[in-house]
């Protein structure tokens, strides 16, 4: 039940929060600052699930999802998108990009955990 999670967000505060929420839930959190960094981290670990922000420098969330989905060894990893946008518009965007689900910021840790369980057990 202890999931390994890769969380990608350019905001340090958001990373800190994700780290806190994930580790408090007994998950193992790996953190990355943007898409490029996320891909680097993926070379070393194989998370059960990925959480990513959309708007990031260097490589944004959509680019990151594309890159993850393009790689056969990662293509099945569930990806949750972190967003502040309202659901409908986002659903379409996230899905088109290849995301598995989404979490609306600011997230409630309980909902985060629930969402993770919905996509990765």
């Amino acid at each position: 039940m202890s999931l390994e999670v890769l969380a990608v967000d350019d905001s340090r505060t958001m990373r800190d929060m994700l780290n806190l929420a994930l580790s408090s839930a007994g998950f193992t959190a790996h953190l990355a600052e943007d898409g490029v960094h996320g891909l680097e981290v993926l070379e070393d670990i194989h998370p059960d699930v990925i959480i990513t922000d959309i708007n990031m420098p260097r490589m944004d969330g959509f680019g990151f999802i594309d890159a993850v989905r393009a790689e056969a060894k990662w293509s099945r990893i569930p990806i949750l998108v972190l967003t502040t946008e309202s659901a409908d518009e986002l659903k379409a965007k996230a899905r088109a990009a290849g995301a598995t689900g989404w979490i609306v910021k600011p997230f409630d840790p309980a909902k985060l955990v629930k969402a993770l369980q919905m996509v990765a057990g």
């Binding site: 990373r15 193992t28 790996h30 990355a32 960094h37 981290v41 070393d44």
Partner: peptide
């Protein structure tokens, strides 16, 4: 953060 990396930037 776990050892998975300091950003290269």
């Amino acid at each position: 953060i776990k050892a998975t990396g300091t950003p290269t930037q």
